[in-house]
Simulated scan of single mutants.
Amino acid sequence: MAFHRRVVWITGASSGIGEALAYEFAQQGARLVLSARRADALERVRANCQRPEQHYVLAMDMKDIDRFPDLVKAVEQAMGTIDLLINNAGVSQRSLVKDTCLAVDRELMEVDYFGPVALTKAVLPLMLARKRGRLVAVSSIAGLVATPMRSTYAAAKHALRAFYDALRAEVYDHGVYVSVIYPGFVKTNISIAALVGDGSTQNKMDDAQNAAMSPQTFAQLAVAALARGEEHIVIGGLKEKLAVYIDRASPELRQWLMRKVKVV
């Protein structure tokens, strides 16, 4: 009953992890705000959720941060209190540092870091005023252990972790809670849509992505962890979790392994 009638706002809800989270939260009785750039895709997700009439579609671009205060007001007017904000929208990367133009680095940081930060800042005052709510960021295991071909993606996800860790300490005594989810490989289209060095998309599925856990399994694990109030949520395969443990125990060993491991 943890999410029954709670308002859960999910960005990046039109596909992949965000879509799977929408279905799982809807099954738990939540009322959803579904956001992404494509309104038609969001309407499809809404129609496939349990009790579709209780959910609200709000198309938005994570780079259009000047609109966020007005979007927050629209959500409040349509749905009432925002109980959970899940910053899931993002774009990945598949390119070497030497081959990546600075415009791509900026794009990744705008979507994966500044967008979530701006939306968090737009929602935070409302939660602080009510002394309740949970802010959630979907980072990545790459936000804990940086790998080749994902330099700026990993940097943005590391930055998101640091921002949310600092925020957690600031708001803990004010009834607002902060969680960060660190997915490993999940079988979604994230690698297909990943940016390469010139800003175009990779347009192919990575082998590791293709063999990964389903988004449905990920969503079940993530929602269950949030229901328990967990703050640091690592979800991945054995190798990915092992990389996190090795990084803590021996950064030197982790760095050696990163030079050897296949990451696409």
Rank of each mutant, 00 (worst) to 15 (best):
A89C: 05
V97N: 00
R150M: 15
V97I: 11
I192K: 09
L84K: 01
V196L: 05
L85T: 06
V138H: 05
R150Y: 02
G143R: 10
A154N: 08
R94H: 11
A194M: 07
A146R: 00
F185N: 14
T152D: 06
V111R: 03
A156H: 02
A103Q: 13
T147C: 12
A146M: 03
V180G: 12
N87I: 11
L167N: 05
V138A: 09
N189E: 14
A194Y: 02
I141A: 11
L119A: 04
V196N: 06
T81Y: 06
R134D: 03
S200G: 11
G115S: 09
L119H: 07
V75N: 07
E76N: 10
T188F: 11
V97Y: 07
S95Q: 01
P148H: 13
V196C: 09
D198M: 10
D165V: 08
V178H: 07
L108D: 02
A129W: 00
V117L: 15
A193E: 15
I141K: 04
Y177A: 15
D99H: 07
P183R: 11
A103R: 06
V104K: 00
G115F: 08
L167Q: 02
T81V: 14
A78P: 01
S139T: 07
V138R: 02
L128W: 07
S95A: 15
S95H: 05
L124E: 09
P183H: 13
S191W: 11
Y164S: 08
A193K: 12
S200V: 03
N87S: 13
D83G: 10
V186E: 05
D198A: 03
V196E: 12
M127R: 01
T152Y: 02
L119G: 01
K121N: 15
T120M: 10
L167C: 09
S191M: 10
L128V: 12
E110Q: 15
H158K: 03
A129C: 03
A142Q: 14
V138C: 09
R168W: 03
